[in-house]
Design a binder for these strands. Sequence first.
DNA 1: ACCGGTCCCTGTTAGC
DNA 2: TGCTAACAGGGACCGG
Length: 300
Amino acid sequence: MPELPEVEVVRRGLARWVAGRTIEWADVRHPRAVRRHAGGAEDFTRRLAGQRVRNVGRRGKYLWWELADGDALLAHLGMSGQFLIGDDDPPPHPHLRAALTLSPSPQLPTLIRFVDQRTFGALAVVPMSPVCDEPAAASPCRPKIPRPIAHIARDALDPALDEGRLVAAMRARRTGIKRALLDQTCVSGVGNIYADEALWRARLHYARPTETLTVSRVTLLLSAVRDVMTEALGEGGTSFDSLYVNVNGESGFFGRSLAVYGRDGRPCRRCGSLVRRDQFMNRSAYTCPRCQPRPRRARW
DNA sequence: ACCGGTCCCTGTTAGC
DNA sequence: TGCTAACAGGGACCGG
């Protein structure tokens, strides 16, 4: 389940192989992979052929290839999307959704595959637009992000994140704290795994109403989010199965460091109480019942 | 404007 | 053993 650390691992891997190179051809193998592209598969291919790639950017769980003409190849990995460098071994991967061929370069692989079992991932060629929370006077050349994700907030590891404004926004919500963490228009990059891990670190129950949290509690929680994501990034991300791997097909190792996520029935690493799993938003929420007691006025 | 529920998808696993 | 249901879950979308 790629969240910010996993997507950043992929971004770094991609940048190493595609920055400065030219896309020769884009082959769409499944129409659903480009369902977010306005012009369909044919237009997708036409817009990419011959484009030079400047670099690879990321905000939250989105990443994009910056193209020389000013557009971007925007990608979301969904639950199981992968970019894999190099040719396939036969038989071909059963979930290959798109193949990008780069112009030949000595010693470098020319093929990048987009593989996605559960097809929640998507690719699209989109225009860029100026970042809207950036003061116009700050720089003559305002930074840009892909237009379809202009509504996605700066992510937890973004140096330009306005912490004070974020804390205020979270406390202004009228919902449970985990819902607020998962809302990508508040702060982006946090998914189910790191939300549960950060809440455990901050000793907060997921159903705590946001309006009952003090500024310092929310600030502490956001530090926990940053810490756990930074640690996960250092371990190459979290892999439960073969659905999250880096561009070389390798797993990440943060799974062994998880405190609560996926550990129901096993002892809390802090107090020994048994971790529990609750149904939450049609998925799961893992907590330690002693470290994170359910508030009397629960909200979610 | 904000909030919460639903749906999109497929492979694996648990349970009967 | 073979079937079905639950589960994994981000985010667009829609209705209140």
